[in-house]
Design a protein around this nucleic acid. Sequence first.
DNA 1: TCTGGGGTCCTAGGACCC
DNA 2: TCTGGGGTCCTAGGACCC
Length: 429
Amino acid sequence: MKKIYALVDCDAFFCNCERLFRPDLRGKPVIVLSNNDGCTVSRTIEAKALGIEMAAPYFKIQKFCEENGVYAFSSNFSLYTNISSRIMKTLSTLSPIIEYYSVDEAFLDLTGIAEPYEYAKRIRQTIAKKIGMPVSVGVAHTKVLCKVACHFAKQRPELAGVSILLDQEKQDHYLKNMSVQKLWGIGKQRAIKLRLMGIKTAKDFRDYKDIVRIQQTLTKVGRQIQDELRGHICFPLSIEIEKKKEIMSSRTFGSSVFTKEILKESIATHASEVAKELRSQRSVCMEVTVFIRSNPFKENSSQYHRSTKHCFLSPTSNTFKIINTALQCLDRIFKPGIEYKKSGVRISHFQDSAEATLSLFEPADTVKEEDLMLVMDKVNLREGKESLKSLACGLNNITWKMNQRLKSKRFTTRWHELREISCDYVALK
DNA sequence: TCTGGGGTCCTAGGACCC
DNA sequence: TCTGGGGTCCTAGGACCC
């Protein structure tokens, strides 16, 4: 039996999370900005209709937004991840086979369901009713075709958010009306190459006969996308939640940083962050990479971009060891007289903490050190982030912390930020 | 004078995604 | 003044082994 998959994709996810607590913004243009209120990362249909582009620098469009009644928000990830987990939980009651693809998307296996269209409508209604989030659903035989279906479900109002793409005729019609660059997995660079081969629409790509040439130009991935468009599964659902293979924490500074002392605070903070993440998936790492860079948009100031790494002999997930190592890396690449704008720490080469290979030449984390990390994680979970931290992270990092002037409250994850409702008392008679 | 071939593993960098 | 952050996969090519 041919598989039937459904892609459930939230509409303007971050914006609609904000709207859940601001019902007055329904039907109004809303945008959500990246960290530091840098550029747009989510836009409602109304904002798109005003011509606001994805990744538009906010300082360039701020005046336009104010004049046109666009509501702008700083990103509020604690809120978004909480709403996301509620949606995923609800979706898991609608199909036992589900892939949590991203914060706002999931693939469901609907194989064997008699009325896929009715079922897709039910999925949409359930999420609307239980969470209040508008979603689009695309149903097809492969993931790439689900993406195509979903694209049209969002684009064509007459489809009311649900699009079924199971028969050939409809596939021909949709693919003919879709530019090849809109396909999942075809970005700017690959689209340029395809255009040189005379391939403009998704249908041109599907029907292109020279498979060897596709493989040569777009590598294996290109051939797989083409195969999926033809209805053959190359990307099955991955049900298992896999551990991350690398973890990164990095941030653009709120304002430029000139001194090593402040850079050290930022690096130590990122190191703590990745170490905590690492422990939460019960892994240990073998490698730490540190990078710093100046502001690439500031053409008249001297540019500097360096990174360096350190390999441990014994893998670790100890915050203090990772901080120390990261700071030694910083020593090697720091250059005075530069206007720094961003720093970051990445860890990689993981092993399961229970099965880690130890070294004869470097001491492993002791039980005492591991216990200390356990306690630190527990305290921070209960008392709030950074209740316990290394002094190396600094005490009040005002200089480099983010600008987030437009941030909403963490309505669903902090008691003291709960929504307040006032209403008049009406006596019951 | 004549100096192989096949395989694996690792890494950097490109491209893409949300 | 002000331009995000975090991830994955793939490939070419180097290093190394027998």
